[in-house]
Amino acid sequence: MNTILECKSLTKNFSNLTALSNVNLALERGRIIGLLGPNGSGKTTLIKLINGLLVPNSGEILIDGKQPGTETKKIVSYLPEKTYLPEWMRVSQAIEFFSDFYEDFDQKKAYEMLERLHLDSKKRLKTLSKGTKEKIQLILVMSRKADLYCLDEPIGGVDPAARDYILNTIISNYNENATVIISTHLIADIENILDEVVFIKDGLLTLHTSVDDIRTKEGKSVDTLFREVFRC
């Protein structure tokens, strides 16, 4: 089966608002996909639904044909916006944690990436800066040979050098047969690495197309199109 993610009439309400409304979406394997929309448009809600942290009110979400659960968590590698590693852990303990729980985790790869950052794995996470912690999380997430990577705002609030490091880490490490979903509102920074884009506005899916199509047919960048679609 070539579809890795499928949403059918997916709807998620919170007590006072609709976060996602009747979303239909099918993503194929082997793509890098930008999940684009302003803050509060429903990007994180969709990613949380994929990861089973939320349950839809109606509709269905399928990852490799299965509803979110233990089986899908084995093949989805998730980078949340939060720094989620326990602060007391040493970097090496965080690596051990990942390799204990994820069969697809490549410990050797993780240590190689750490070495390239000149990071001492004996250090405790609480002694590291926020930026370094985020890089370590990215290394852990990208050291898995997953089928679907969900990266929630991986380049939010980082300097250009860190941004290049992050994008290079993603490009050079994701599993070729896998799909990478990158959610962001900073489109100009990442549009060169995207195959496809999905626009979300106020919980509605407004566009799903290939980047080359936007550039050839519309003759404009994704960023320009985004600014037009989401003009206030």
Binding site: N51, G52, L53, T70, E71, K73, K74, V76, Y78, P80, K82, T83, Y84, L85, P86, F101, Y102
Partner: peptide
């Protein structure tokens, strides 16, 4: 702390029941 703060993102996405 382990389940309902930011660490919960790590714990509840582990492939365990």
């Amino acid at each position: 702390k382990n389940l309902f703060t930011d660490e919960g993102y790590l714990m509840f996405t582990l492939p365990v029941k």
